[in-house]
Design a protein around this nucleic acid. Sequence first.
DNA 1: CGTCGGGTTGACCTTCGTCAAAGGCAGTGG
DNA 2: CCACTGCCTTTGACGAAGGTCAACCCGACG
Lengths: 217, 217
Amino acid sequence: MAEGMDKADLLDLHMLVEHVGPLRAGDHVFREGDAFEAIAAVRSGTVKTYTVDRDGHEHVLGFYFPGEVIGLDGIHGDRYPCNAVALDTVMLCRFSFPKISVLATQLPGLQKHLFRLLSRDIGRAALLAGDWTADQRMAAFLVGLSRRLAARGFSPNRFQLTMARTDIANYLRLAPETVSRVLRRFQQDRLLLVDRREVELLDRAQLDALAEPLLRD
Amino acid sequence: MAEGMDKADLLDLHMLVEHVGPLRAGDHVFREGDAFEAIAAVRSGTVKTYTVDRDGHEHVLGFYFPGEVIGLDGIHGDRYPCNAVALDTVMLCRFSFPKISVLATQLPGLQKHLFRLLSRDIGRAALLAGDWTADQRMAAFLVGLSRRLAARGFSPNRFQLTMARTDIANYLRLAPETVSRVLRRFQQDRLLLVDRREVELLDRAQLDALAEPLLRD
DNA sequence: CGTCGGGTTGACCTTCGTCAAAGGCAGTGG
DNA sequence: CCACTGCCTTTGACGAAGGTCAACCCGACG
């Protein structure tokens, strides 16, 4: 959902970086209502962000992989508006936000970069809005993961679903059973192979075609 | 969807206002791609904004009543990102955006006001996102209309649906037939009376209860 | 070996979209 | 004044998609 910092920016910033981790699965990076003082780039592992509504139901907002940035949605307040939790072993870099925003006023490239990161995160909402079918949502989710992982140097066709089925379902606003059934049917139709949390995309063209109406815009 | 300008702001601005109208039903205020040079406050009548996707399908974005402001979503580009069309006889005031934005740098209240208008418009998306039932969407639509009209001095319980059923359906992402059926059922259940485009809300408590999960946030 | 949490599967049912047809109001022209 | 026509709306019948419920499976771990 978020585009990472490139090498040049990391060089500019390496003096105000604080390395954090390793966090274990279930550890929180920050919680809703915590004072907003830093954003963080994932170095390894997967982070899930979510909120809990007043009925106690969890709402998964997004998943973040190495190179991606979490905490940006705290910018417009002094508190984080959501929780961030490690799904596996996670390493990250914290950037003090006061320091980075001062720096952004001096580095025009950095400010532009931050705005891009923000708007990228907003576009994520396209997955949720609209009345897409379960197949389209699932395909868009997988294609989106694949592209993001590929952009980070991972294999675009074989990867791990580090999040639970219930998290995927919650994120896509589907029932967990539906996620299970769609994956099974995709496998029957030779679109992919899935074994536990391991996925291999086979028919990329067809998955792209399914995902296209969600990912364009 | 947008909060209007209050009296004090109108006084501040009355020198750079251009009165437009009357427009007849079907006349366009602006079209997608037109150069963005002004925002406009509706003085009377109803305006619908919409886009047309590359498959030729219309997507209704919102409805605007007297006191509400259209064109704000053009701020981040030099072109309007959508069409705005009059649904009935419409009068409006155009505010040159270059002039207003210069003024905003001098009047702190105005700048804050513009930001509030913007964020209010963004919150509208809650109606579309989420997997709400047809009943919830319809109730939220009616309660939302009622509140906005009441804030402008109109009756909160009796009002005209100035837009076609197909527009309501498109906006709520429902089939027109579903809109028709939900309204009929609401009437059977004594939640409201509806005759053609005239609506009277009867059981406000129950409608509020239906709409509540959509309108809170 | 038992238990526990996540995942899968099947049966069922609700909701809503689609299709087709008919009703009603408005504007037009005879 | 009255057909005629076109558009919006309603209504009914039907079907597909996906949620719910319940049971079962299976790998992990004590």
